[in-house]
Each structure stands twice: as structure tokens, then as C-alpha cells.
Design a protein around this nucleic acid. Sequence first.
DNA 1: CCTAGACCCTGTAGTGGCTACAGACTCAAG
DNA 2: CTTGAGTCTGTAGCCACTACAGGGTCTAGG
Lengths: 155, 155
Amino acid sequence: MAKTAAKAEFPIGALAKESAVNIETIRYYEKIGVMPKAPRSAGGYRLYAPEHLKWLTFIRRGRELGFSLDELRDLLHLVDGHAYSCAEVRALTLDHVAGIRQKIADLKRLERVMTSVASQCSGRKIPDCPVIDALFQAAPATARSRRSKTRGRYV
Amino acid sequence: MAKTAAKAEFPIGALAKESAVNIETIRYYEKIGVMPKAPRSAGGYRLYAPEHLKWLTFIRRGRELGFSLDELRDLLHLVDGHAYSCAEVRALTLDHVAGIRQKIADLKRLERVMTSVASQCSGRKIPDCPVIDALFQAAPATARSRRSKTRGRYV
DNA sequence: CCTAGACCCTGTAGTGGCTACAGACTCAAG
DNA sequence: CTTGAGTCTGTAGCCACTACAGGGTCTAGG
């Protein structure tokens, strides 16, 4: 446990448990450069320090709040270099909120359509279902269906 | 235009234009069995009839309403065999609506968190941003973060 | 010292729903 | 017969993981 090493190193399994992030995901994060490369033991095991846990927690939280790994990488580089201003970060965040609002609006529209269509269902065993009919009709214009960047289907 | 063929056959490009679905996507749909295999011309071109357009419109609409291709395949097989009851379809639809509501709720929660965090930003150029601080803190329990089936990140 | 078993390693392939290419072929008009 | 638009197949890429296979390492107990 104490050899020549720094304070309190731990292997990837412990980091996974602490952070509630999968081992494979951690390795993946390292591979794509979202997590820094961990130093290795003589046998090739990754060795982590508390900073890594903070870093990973940041990523997990960010993912939960809907940031992409790309965005988080940028954010982390900003933070790591202490070169960020609160205004920068807020701008990024508000951008993000705008995206979320858009998604909520889209989903609400969807909910309205689906509900109204389903409510017309008779429940009888005939091939005359309004849901099916609705699906056979082309959509009315579908405005705003290609927003750059936020191109995910999210549904 | 009229050889020995049936009424009004057209190639994939026309179908793509009519349906507003990409050519590649149509071929992909055929490959994975969501679209039926189209008959071919002597030279190997796919030939489509109006039924195919209806079928594809159904898929596009369904996708816009958030059905997965799997769900649509089932739906289409039901419809194609005329074996569906309106009740069956309604059940599937309402299930779907429930999923949408869940997503809306999640996104609203997200929006609230992000907005409140961003609103605390001073805009000054110091390394003391509440967004960053929030990201460094572990999430509070994160209840309901693993709902089977609806496992997409949707954000 | 040896062994068992828990842990870790790399690399590859799969998920969903497409999109984008390369390189070859077909078709219709001039 | 040529030209150029359209089409063909097959493969690889996107995102953010997840799930293996087939090996190596570490450590506690005998």
C-alpha cells in the first residue's frame, strides 16, 4: 500500500465504485482524451489519485446535465488551465439551456399529437384506427426539423 | 415508361423526393427489413409503386412521433396482415406517450438546475464559477437514472 | 514457494439510426 | 455512341457507451 508512491493511489475499480462510472467507460474516456492518461504501476495497472475522482465526477455530472463529451473536454481544459471566466462558462450553460428548452417544446408538441390521436381510438377490432390513419398521412410541414448541431433524435 | 410493368413504377430517387427520406436511408430500411424488398429492373434498379410510398410515409411519420424502427416494424406487420385491433395500437401509443412524458419531466428538471446554476454566475473573470462548482459536486442521488428500455440519454 | 481467485489489461465488435463515401454499373437523351 | 445523371454494393463513420475474449497481475492463504 505504501511503496514509493504519492498519497493514496487506487486502481480503476475503486475509482469506478467511488464515481459510479463504469470501468469500461473510464477507460473509454481516457482513450478519447476526456480523462487524462493515468500513470501506471509496474505491472501496467492504472493508478488514480483524488484529483482523478474530482475530474471524473465533473464529467459524470456534466453528462447528467446533458453536456456532450466534447463540451466537457473544452470545459475541463478551461478549468484545468484556470483560464476560464465565469461569463464564458455561463454563456455555454445558457446555450445549453436553450437546447433543452427546444427539446421540451418539441416533446410537448409530440405528446399533444400522440395523445389526441390515441384518444380517438375506439378500441374495436376493426382496421380503422386513427393512429394508423395518422401515420399514413404525411406530416404537415414539420417546421424546424433540422437544427444544426442539436441534430440528435432525443426521442 | 410503359413496358410490361405494372402501374406507375418509379426509381428510388423519386421515392426519396416524394417521401422526403434520404436514398441511403431507404436502402438502409430495406436492409434491416423495415421496408419490403423492392422488385428490380433488368439492370438491378429498385422499382417502387405507390404502396411503397405509403409504407415509407408511415415510417417517416412514426419516426417523427418517436417510434423506434423496431416498434414500426411490428406496427407495419400488424397493419399489413390486417390483424390489428385499434385497442392494441392505442396501448402501444399510450405507452409511448408515457415515455415522452417521462422525458419531458427529466428535461424540465434539468432546465431548472441549469438555469438556477447559471443565474448565480457573476460574469467576473475569477475561477469561482458556480457552474463549475456544481459540476465538481457529486449528484444528489440521481433517482430514477436507470429506467429499463428507455435507456437513451435523450439530451 | 505456489496456487486460486479477484482484479486488471488491450483490442475488437456491437448498439440505433442513420450518413457519407468509393468505385462500379445502368439508363435516357442527344 | 457518348455523356452525365442516376443507381448499385459495400464499407466506414457518427455518439457514448457496453460487452466480450483472451490474456496478464496482484495478493492472501496454505
